[in-house]
């Protein structure tokens, strides 16, 4: 059984002025102990997808369709009480900004302890002891003293370690990480990334790691899903995606990174800009910027194609391999559906 499975996920934000089509039919699975990296630029729907896994999106303005299951539990359909048990228990999340993601008027010990007491029902003292263990586990120096520190008294790297300790406090099976290294200094980024990777392996957690940084993905991912305009345009094993990208968008992303080009050459950027999520183009969302654009790209959203077994690319320009391999791994099969509408 997969640890987490997302099928046909659609998320729309509805306001009086406009409807934003943030996620448009996303599907993937994460096996226990596996790290899935969702790659994409700002506004591609990667963070929204991650939040949907915990139903953390504002209920009143959000319409979610599709199915999200974690360890067989239907996340989108479960009652709120069960959802609260799931959040921080079975599934935990690390946020991008350690500066603002912690409550400024409680000590870090109180904040970690609160999570532990919420999920285990243990006493204040026991929670404090466990919080201390966790701070030591994430390698915070002089952890005992830092237990009574307020977030503003810690550096960005330490704060992110506190976030990680808090997320791991109730031994989640699935860890969601929303660009956890983006807001940190380069040297600290690497430390936090190594720490996360080590803890993920030691604890055998599944992890979904959202980032826009290809280097980070290469470092931490087992599988990669590339998102563009609310759709997964390419997915597969990390080596396959980064070494032999099939989708022109992924290829463009790779070309636009710094990897030892000569200094007098400009870095290739992808021409144009991401589409307006309120008015998506009819066919392939990437078509207006795509160097391989064909006539059909303007009319039809490309079906998933499999150049290699396990490697999916949603692009009209990609050739199919043998039909037999398709059926085995097609990620978007209509499954059980749950609808969450406005409260």
């Amino acid at each position: 059984m997969p640890l987490a499975e997302v099928r046909d996920l659609y998320v729309r934000f509805v306001t009086r002025e406009a409807t934003v089509y943030a996620v448009n039919g996303v599907g993937f699975t994460v096996r226990p102990g596996e790290v899935l990296c969702i790659l994409g630029e700002s506004g591609s729907g990667k963070s929204v997808t991650l939040r949907a896994l915990m139903r953390l999106l504002p209920a009143r303005r959000t319409q979610i369709r599709g199915s999200v299951t974690v360890e067989g539990q239907n996340v989108l359909g479960m009652p709120r009480r069960a959802l609260r048990d799931l959040r921080g228990g079975l599934v935990a999340m690390i946020f991008q900004e350690p500066m603002t993601a912690l409550d400024p008027v409680y000590t870090v010990g109180q904040q970690i302890g609160e999570t532990i007491r919420r999920h285990t029902g243990c006493g204040r003292e026991a929670a404090r002891r466990r919080a201390l263990e966790l701070l030591e586990m994430v390698r915070i120096p002089s952890a005992a003293r830092r237990l009574d520190a307020y977030p503003h008294e810690l550096s960005g790297g330490l704060r992110q370690r506190v976030m990680i300790a808090m997320a791991l406090s109730c031994s989640p099976r699935l860890l969601l990480a929303d660009e956890p290294t983006t807001a940190l200094d380069a040297t600290v980024q690497v430390q936090v990334l190594i720490l996360l990777r080590r803890l993920q392996r030691e604890l055998g957690m599944g992890m979904i790691f959202v980032t826009h940084d290809l280097g980070v993905a290469a470092e931490i991912a087992d599988t990669v899903a590339v998102m563009y305009a609310g759709r997964i345009v390419e997915s597969g094993p990390v080596g396959q995606i980064l070494n032999a990208p099939a989708h022109p968008y992924t290829a463009g992303l790779l070309a636009s990174t710094v990897h030892g080009q000569s200094r007098d050459r400009d870095i290739d950027a992808i021409a144009g800009s991401p589409p307006d999520m309120r008015r998506l183009p009819q066919g392939c969302s990437f078509a207006p910027r795509c160097p391989l654009r064909m006539a059909e790209c303007r009319f039809a959203v490309p079906e998933p194609r499999f150049p290699v077994r396990g490697h999916m690319a949603a692009c009209h320009a990609v050739a199919h391999s043998s039909p037999a391999t398709q059926a085995a791994v097609t990620p978007t099969v209509a499954g059980s559906r749950a609808t969450i509408s406005a409260r």
């Binding site: 921080g88 228990g89 603002t100 993601a101 919420r118 808090m166």
Partner: peptide
């Protein structure tokens, strides 16, 4: 503020 989402994500 951001930390409110963290609190919800903790299961509070």
């Amino acid at each position: 503020q951001d930390f409110v989402q963290t609190l919800r994500a903790k299961g509070l």
